[in-house]
Structure formats: structure tokens, C-alpha cells
Design a protein around this nucleic acid. Structure first.
Length: 695
DNA sequence: GAGCACTGC
């Protein structure tokens, strides 16, 4: 048994509780403490309620309910507002209904945006149930591949990415009277771009004396200064929630080995706590999670008598769906559930019954390196808000306990907030979308958290190479090709690949390849069965690279009618395969709307490779005399990723889809090309490069 | 020579 990790006495806190100092313009409290008995709302029952009693009672018991009148009175007169409400306050399901019932925003549609599809769908279902209407009538939702809304829809839930798409065809968002940006604290790229788009639409509509646009930003955390300032000093409304108290323990000493510390903590809890109380452990990635899960199971086998048994469940996004679902099933009586997860359990997946959270304080996340212009995936410290979010996962139904595997001193040194994604990612897509909306002066776009000028410039350079940009009167605008690229829900380089494909008579094939590349990997690689996987995959491998290999797999899958058993036997992720087929159909529709010819090159694989060379020429690498590879763009040393079909080959020249920095800089998804094809594709670009290397 | 956080259009 490992020795005790050593935790000092607990500090009590309630995550996100209490108003932010000095910034609250109005305070709306629901009454009642957290976790304890709640005050009954003192308002009179409406004369004739349209709701069945149970639903009505449930709605009235939510913390937001006593604030209803005050909330409506305030919101009626405000253009913009920020609403802070903890988990469980009922803000997301109730506020849109209150607005509708109060006759606010009835001249148009009330939109509520969500970062995730599942959330948009389940919230719409919930609210339409409460309104006792059929989903898609009064209350509906719109997410990619699934639009359940109609002319009658007045309350619409949509993903933030979907609303952005709509802004391309109508940048004033004319059909909406009110836009509620929910989960704003997550600061996804899409939400961040929407902030700017919605703010501009609001101002422009005012200038044009059109229907005013009301904007409500909803956040679960207290750091709202930025939101309020950004929306011209918008009022901040505070709602108390239903979070239960959580005890937090820190370690006395910094931990050298967080995996070891996590194991110690799990078994310390396991020996002390009743077996009905489940544990959630936060680690950084698949490999680590699988290794720790195995160790946990091994140790659990050799525990002393009287110790409860243990059900260890890994949880990460690339885990097959059926295995993900196991975390929702209760463990047998006398058995404890231990869930070992990535940050997928921070926001995306909520598990009930968690009493203990073990937080290693580490996360694997993308960083942006402005010098090299590259994204780097690296294990790093979480931010304070992230640590609170993790702790909060222990207090969903009852009071909880969080063990932090770092000292309080270390915690104080964590970044206050996670750096918004928009400052950590490639901006080519964002820029293309803004240009498609005809935003004037894109380079000075009013972002809430501005990306650095270098960062923006790198995106301009990328779009320029793809032939998407032109300059008119010192303003950046889109070329006809650029406008077409923006129509595809894809990274710009993939959109360009599709647009080039008719020239190489391989549109059908390119559509398949691009679809497969734009979903999560269809190749399932359980580390414990590596040899089996390699043996099965051999029959699809192409010496011409990963794109052709993927095409081979898709063709076999299709010829068998999408057989799930075949997928399992061949270590193919059937969920992602189906998704790729759906993406392909959508992309094909867009091509047909543009009157692109649907052509196939049949067995002529070379034309596919030529097409890829012409669209990915800026991501190429050449074999050096010493057997290593160097990128043609920045002469950076790179290596072939071990997952590639070309891992054991050494082609002279390749293009790749992605660079991945882990222990080395790896190229992923490679295609063998001829050097002269690259030169043909962009003679000026390569002439510049050659001159640069000579200097 | 040896490895892939999480969303979304």
C-alpha cells in the first residue's frame, strides 16, 4: 500500500458562490442556503396555470423563480445584460420562457446558444416539455445535421457554431429579437466570435432603426468584468444556485508524481468511505488513463478483507460510445465506482453520485506558439477556474469532497482563468468566416480578448496562400474562391482541396477523404491490442499514404453496407464512420449547390495525390540525406507519426495534414507526392522559399 | 524511430 499523501485540514467553500466584489448592479437572491432547506417562494399562485401541477411545482422550486418579476422588469429595459447563475439555478431553461411569457422579444425569435450539440438538443426537449408543446413548434433547436424548428418556433436552442453559420448569410441576425449566449465562461472560439458579431449586429440594427436586439450573456462563474465592460458596461444580475458545499483538501508537500499521488488518494478514500460513494479522478489523456485504470484494478484485487470491491471505469472522448455509457450505470451493491477521466468530465459529461473528486491539477491542452506559428499539445497546469469546475463535480446532489494533489501555495500560482481558445488556435477559419460576413477591417475586429497581431497575420498568410484573399482599397476581402471556401463547414485548406478536385477528376474520392479527416479518427487503437490492430489493418494499408488508406477502409465499409460487426473486427470506430458518411453527404450537397461536377477518378490514385499536392503544398516535407525529414516551409525537422501507414517507409517527398508536437514534431496523415507537383502547384511560393534558404 | 485534451460548422 502506498503511504499516505498527507492532507492538511479542509477549507470549506462553495464554488462560484457569492457576488463578485463591487461589480454587482442588482442583486437577486433566491433565498435559502445551499444544500439545506429552501424557502418557499412567497408569491401567489397564478389564477389558471396552463401547466400540470408537478411541472409547475418543479418550475417554481427553482432558485431563479422568486427573482422572476424583478428579472423581467430589469431585462425589459436593458439592451444588454450579464446574468451569473450557478449550476442548478434554472437560468438556461427558465429565462427564455420568462422572456416569452413576459412578452419580451415576441417580435422575433429568442435564441439560446450552447457550446455543445447534446446540450442544445436536451435543453430544447426539456423546455418544450415544460411548455407542453411539440418539439419543433414553439420551442425548437438547430444543430448540424439536425434542425427541429419551424416558422412557429419562438424559443430556439442552437450551437454557437450554428448561429455563426447563420450570420454568414445575415450578419444582422434579423430573425432574432433576443440572443442569449449561454456558458459564456467556457470561452469557446465560436462564443468569442459571436460576442463580436452579436455586438456589431446590435449596434448596426440600432443605427438602422430596425428591431432592437437584446443580448444576454450567461455565465456560471464570477469573473464577469470582461463581459460587462465589453457590452458597454452591461448590468450584472446575480442568481444563487443549487451547488452543495464542498470540502477541499490540499497536499502538504508538492507531489513529484501526480499519477502515484492519484493512486494513493483513491485507495485512501476507498478504505475509509462507504462503498456507495463514487470517486472521479482527473488525468490528462488516454494512455495515462488506461495505465492508471489497470494499476487500480490490480491493486484492488489484493486489498484486505472487508474492503469493498472496486469498479474502475476509464472515460475519454475517443473511447467507444458503449464503453462511455458504462459510467452512468450504478455499481453493484457493496462496490465502488472509480471513474478515471480527462477533462471531458469537467463540462461535457455529468455523472451523478460523485462524492469525491481527485484533481491532479494537470490537463492536456493546446497552446499557441506565436514564434513558430504552431499549435502545441502539451500537459500543463489547470487554471483556478478549471480547478473549481472540477471540484464542483463532487457537489451535484449532496455535499462533496475534493482532494487536490497540489499544495495551496501551488494553487495560488495557477493562472486565474484559462486562456480563451481564440488566443490558442489557428485563426484561418475564424478570419475566413468574418470576411464572409463582410466585416469591415477584420484585422481590428472587436474581439473581447484580442489575439496577437502575429497570430492574425499568420492566418492572413495562410488564407492568402490558399488564394482566398484580395486587397481592395487597403481592405482585405474574399476572392470568388474564398467565398466558396467559406460555404464549407471545414478548415479552409480542406475546403480548397474540394474546390480543386474537379480539375483532377477526383471529387467523389476527395469528398470521402476530407470527410474522414474532418471527424475524429475512424481508426480505433486500443494500446493493449496493438499487434492485433496492426495485423487487421495491413489489408487496407497503402504505400501511397494515409489518405489512400482511409479511402480503402471507407470503400470496404460502404461495400458491406456499413456493417457494425465488420467495424468491430477491424478496429474501426463505427460511430465516427457513420458521422463521416453524414459529413460527406452534407459536403456533397454544398458542391451540388455550387454546380460542381461530381466526378470520380475510378482507380487512378495518382490524380488524388496530385490534387492533395496542389492544395496542401504549404504543408510538405522532404527526406534529407541523413534519413530525417524537414518541412519545405520553415525547414523544421519533423518525423513520421507512428500511427501513419508510412511509418516504416521513407518516401522522398510528402504532404501532411497536421503537425503534432509531443516528444517530437510529428506529421500526421501523410500522402506521398512528387516534388515537381508541389512546384507546379505554387511556383512563386517555392521560388520565394528557395531564395530564402539560399540567403 | 514509437504515440493521439476537448468541442463545433
Amino acid at each position: 500500500m502506498p503511504e499516505e499523501a498527507g492532507f492538511p485540514p479542509a477549507k470549506r467553500f462553495r464554488p462560484g458562490c457569492g457576488p463578485p466584489g463591487g461589480r454587482v448592479l442588482m442583486l437577486l437572491t433566491a433565498g435559502g442556503g445551499s444544500g439545506g432547506r429552501r424557502q418557499q417562494p412567497a408569491l401567489a399562485q397564478p389564477a389558471a396555470s396552463p401547466y400540470p401541477e408537478a411541472v409547475e411545482r418543479q418550475r417554481r422550486s427553482l432558485p431563479i423563480f422568486p427573482a422572476r418579476g424583478q428579472l423581467l422588469a430589469q431585462l425589459r429595459n436593458l439592451d444588454s445584460a450579464v446574468l451569473i447563475g450557478e449550476t442548478g439555478s434554472g437560468k438556461t431553461t427558465q429565462l427564455p420562457q420568462y422572456l416569452y411569457e413576459g412578452g419580451i422579444g415576441r417580435q422575433g425569435v429568442i435564441a439560446v446558444t450552447q457550446p455543445r450539440r447534446v446540450a442544445a438538443i436536451s435543453l430544447a426537449t426539456r423546455v418544450s416539455d415544460e411548455k407542453r408543446t411539440e418539439l419543433g413548434k414553439l420551442v425548437g433547436y438547430t444543430v448540424r445535421f439536425d434542425d427541429v424548428s419551424s416558422e412557429d418556433t419562438r424559443i430556439k436552442f442552437l450551437t454557437d457554431g450554428m448561429l455563426l453559420r447563420e450570420a454568414i448569410s445575415d450578419s444582422l441576425l434579423r430573425k432574432y429579437s433576443c440572443i442569449i449566449l449561454d456558458e459564456a465562461h467556457e470561452r469557446t472560439v465560436h462564443t468569442d466570435v459571436l460576442f463580436g458579431v452579436v455586438k456589431a449586429a446590435q449596434r448596426r440594427r440600432k443605427e438602422l432603426r430596425k428591431l432592437p436586439l437584446k443580448v444576454i450573456v450567461m455565465s456560471a462563474t464570477m469573473d464577469v468584468d470582461l463581459f460587462s465592460q465589453y457590452f458597454n458596461g452591461a448590468s450584472v444580475l446575480y442568481l444563487e444556485g443549487r451547488q452543495h458545499p464542498i470540502q477541499v483538501f490540499y497536499t502538504k508537500q508538492p507531489q513529484q508524481d501526480y499519477l502515484h499521488a492519484a493512486l494513493v488518494s483513491v485507495f485512501q478514500i476507498h478504505q475509509e468511505a462507504p462503498s456507495s460513494q463514487d470517486i472521479l479522478v482527473f488525468l490528462t489523456g488516454q494512455e495515462e488513463i488506461e495505465a492508471v485504470s489497470k494499476t487500480c484494478r490490480d491493486i484492488a484485487k489484493h486489498l484486505p478483507d472487508g474492503c469493498p470491491s472496486m469498479l474502475v471505469l476509464p472515460l475519454y472522448a475517443s473511447l467507444p460510445y458503449a464503453q462511455q455509457l458504462r459510467v452512468f450505470q450504478g455499481a453493484p451493491k457493496g462496490c465502488r465506482k472509480v471513474i478515471i477521466a480527462t477533462n471531458i468530465a469537467e463540462t461535457s459529461i455529468t455523472i451523478t453520485g460523485i462524492k469525491y473528486v481527485v484533481d491532479t491539477g494537470m490537463v492536456k491542452a493546446k497552446k499557441y506558439n506565436p514564434d513558430s506559428g504552431l499549435e502545441v499539445l502539451a500537459v500543463q497546469r489547470v487554471s483556478k477556474t478549471q480547478a473549481w469546475q472540477r471540484a464542483g463535480r463532487a457537489g451535484r446532489e449532496d455535499s462533496g469532497i475534493c482532494y487536490r494533489l497540489y499544495t495551496e501555495n501551488e494553487f495560488e500560482k495557477f493562472e486565474k482563468m484559462t486562456v480563451p481558445e481564440i488566443q490558442r488556435c489557428n485563426l484561418a477559419s475564424v478570419l475566413l468566416q468574418l470576411l464572409a460576413m463582410k466585416v469591415p477591417n477584420v484585422l481590428t475586429f472587436d474581439f473581447m480578448s484580442k489575439p496577437s497581431p502575429d497570430h492574425m497575420q499568420a492566418a492572413v498568410a495562410q488564407l492568402d496562400l490558399l488564394g482566398a484573399l484580395e486587397r481592395k482599397d487597403n481592405q482585405l476581402t474574399l476572392t470568388p474562391i474564398g467565398r466558396k471556401m467559406a460555404a464549407f463547414p471545414l478548415e479552409p485548406k480542406f475546403a480548397k482541396t474540394i474546390l480543386l478536385s474537379p480539375k483532377f477528376h477526383c471529387t467523389e474520392e476527395i469528398l470521402t477523404i476530407v470527410s474522414l479527416l474532418s471527424v475524429d479518427s475512424v481508426l480505433y487503437n486500443p494500446p493493449s491490442r496493438r499487434d492485433e490492430v496492426q495485423a487487421m489493418r495491413k489489408k487496407f494499408l497503402s504505400s501511397e499514404g494515409d489518405h489512400i488508406t482511409l479511402l480503402n477502409i471507407y470503400r470496404t465499409f460502404k461495400s458491406l453496407g456499413g456493417d457494425k460487426d465488420w467495424c468491430r473486427e477491424n478496429f474501426v470506430n463505427s460511430r465516427n464512420m457513420m458521422l463521416a458518411a453524414e459529413v460527406r453527404a452534407q459536403l456533397r450537397d454544398i458542391c451540388l449547390k455550387m454546380s460542381m461536377p461530381m466526378v470520380s477518378c475510378r482507380g487512378d490514385v495518382e490524380s488524388i495525390r496530385r490534387c492533395l499536392a496542389h492544395s496542401l503544398f504549404m504543408s510538405a516535407a522532404e527526406l534529407q540525406p541523413d534519413g530525417t525529414y524537414t518541412t519545405t516551409d520553415s525547414r523544421q525537422p519533423v518525423a513520421i507519426h507512428p500511427s501513419s501507414a508510412l511509418f516504416h517507409c521513407r518516401p522522398a517527398c510528402v504532404v501532411y495534414t497536421e503537425l503534432l508536437h509531443t516528444s517530437k514534431c510529428y506529421m500526421r496523415d501523410l500522402c506521398v507526392v512528387a516534388a515537381e507537383w508541389l512546384y507546379e502547384a505554387a511556383p512563386d511560393y517555392f521560388r520565394r522559399k528557395l531564395r530564402a534558404t539560399r540567403d
